[in-house]
Design a protein around this nucleic acid. Structure first.
Lengths: 336, 336
DNA sequence: TCAGGTTTCTACAACGTTGTAAGCAACGTT
DNA sequence: AACGTTGCTTACAACGTTGTAGAAACCTGA
């Protein structure tokens, strides 16, 4: 019960192409012909076959967004903004979960179903520049960390500066034994490295000695990892008076562990995160964090991609920076 | 720089169809021919054009998942399970945000890009059975609420029974002034109606009189709405000793409002939610909730859809129930 | 040796759409 | 009356793939 242009054409007594013209809003169609065609379309409940249209046009109207995990609130929030921004360009977004694994990411970068998408917005964890070269095909925009000298467009947030600022905020509160949670030595840990660099820079500026015992690794950046790392820190006896967690879910886990240990936040230990996810605005206490402008990130990414898709594919890669700000809340200031 | 079967065929000195046969793993290809073709494929970095394949086969290998909002953790977690289950069937999942609006939902139900997807898993808020009739095209599976006598397959969770059980749990703790947060009068409020029905049923069973002043509406089911509703309840002077929130984000908002009001959970007010999102396992206090088996829901939905796509499209609609359990945590029991 | 199969490969025709080029009116201009 | 212009419509040929049908080569066993 699926109809084609041909069926509509026969019913309306015109050529297939005329129906196509009506469907595509072509100007020079006589009003009465148009009416007849539209009637036939309605009667048959005709809808164009997108596969055929795509084949003919070489465009699918679909872009992909590849993120490590959808149930990490940061990526879910980002996804929402990307969907909105893409809709304004008439694109549908195919969301792809890479699970952060190098193999999965490579597959995503290679193009999902390849000809299935017009472009790709990609938030990589494990990939390096090498993995990305040799992708002749689909236009791509990278989010987040800079893959050095990568061949693709980028939307970056200055992780080092942001981490430095929020650490400086903790120092400004008079804290001196500031722990960090979330360090990673794996190649996936690009964000971790940058945020750690910001943290150490802030310490150095304030003349506070870097103490490795205060830096806790976290294999992933989930709540459970944050809680575990915090418990580890507490039981190791290093007695921090503040913690900078490399993302908000880690921080929420840390809050939980501190609560269980009977410590007060921020009186005993101040806690800061990174990402500004919605949970942090309602947690107890509310969470001080770095708030990257997610909407801006999404919008810039979509625009860069649009530029590639419609424009010059050989132009040198562009890099746009998205702003961030500090959101100071109860977990450091004690005030909402 | 994009190659077609024809290019590979020329390079390997065989026909186009032979290359196609190699690509599709057709059996009867001589090993040396196969090798030659594979070499050519590798040299040219050939990848099939999916639009063309889809056109020819009438299948796209893509199913859509339409949910109200991706940044509601419940849906994000569900999406993840759906993606996993679909991958086992070789499908890619296109995630569509309907924003819960009737118009958007109708559009989603009508099929995203129509021929673009083989099937649709749909978690409707606003749609009724009427909106769904007249969809001859794409196979569809509905999640959650029963759209009465709807024409499509369903995966349901017994909302009434679950709500009754968790309310009974609160009653079992000795609470008598049990508030409910999340009621809705709009047509979108199907879940709300069912959960409210479970709540009142439990009260009736225990011989507790239903008090309308204890039932707080919530326009949406976000944290902010839960917090607002809780503040409203507290300031209205009804003095509840327990609250059943119709989902977890509402409950997290309520926890926040109770905290701000200086009330202890669960000593002064016990709090229960619905959905078992990850946040609730780390919140302070951790959240008692109804835990629907999301993985099961996703798996059943994908299987129902597979049945429609590969099998009999005219078979009568099926309805499968997914189990749930109560997750009792600090917010009612005081113990983790 | 040959009939009858099996294996291996190919030509052709779709799938449903749109760009191109061209045809045919009807019109205004010279 | 001849001409170009404009508006409307159409036939045809792609887009890149795969199913069908069949040809050619190769086996097998009598």
């Amino acid at each position: 019960m699926r109809h084609r242009l041909k069926d509509v054409a026969e019913r309306a007594g015109v050529s297939v192409k005329t129906v196509s013209n009506v469907v595509n809003g072509y100007l020079h169609v006589r009003p009465d012909t148009r009416a007849r065609v539209e009637e036939a379309i309605a009667e048959l409940n005709y809808r164009p076959n997108l596969s055929a249209r795509n084949l003919r046009k070489g465009r699918t109207g679909v872009i992909a967004l590849a993120v490590p995990e959808l149930d990490i609130p940061y990526f879910a929030e980002l996804a929402r903004y990307v969907v909105t921004a893409a809709a304004e360009h008439g694109w549908t977004v195919l969301i792809d979960q890479t699970e952060g694994g190098p193999e999965q990411e490579r597959k995503a970068a290679a193009g999902i179903g390849d000809h299935m998408i017009d472009g790709l917005i990609f938030s990589p964890l494990a990939l390096t520049a090498d993995d990305l070269s040799g992708l002749d095909g689909t236009p791509m925009v990278l989010l987040g960390e800079r893959v050095d000298h990568g061949p693709a467009d980028h939307v970056v947030v200055d992780n080092v500066a942001a981490a430095r600022e929020i650490t400086a905020h903790l120092i400004g509160l008079g804290r001196r034994r500031i722990a960090a949670i979330g360090s990673q030595r794996t190649p996936e840990g690009a964000s971790a490295r940058l945020r750690l660099a910001g943290y150490t820079a802030a310490l150095a500026e304030a003349g506070i000695e870097y103490d490795e015992a205060l830096v806790a690794p976290a294999p992933a950046w989930h709540r459970a990892d944050g809680a575990a790392a915090m418990r580890e820190l507490l039981s190791s006896g290093v007695r921090p008076d503040a913690v900078f967690c490399f993302n908000d879910t880690l921080a929420l886990g840390a809050l939980r562990a501190l609560h269980e240990a009977g410590l007060r936040v921020p009186e005993d230990v101040a806690v800061a995160g990174f990402d500004d996810i919605e949970d942090g605005r309602f947690s107890i206490p509310t969470l001080t964090t770095v708030a990257p402008d997610k909407e801006r990130i999404a919008r810039l990414a979509v625009e860069l991609l649009a530029g590639r898709i419609d424009g010059d594919r050989e132009a040198p890669p562009r890099e746009l920076a998205a702003p961030y700000r500090l959101a100071l809340r109860e977990s450091t200031t004690g005030r909402p």
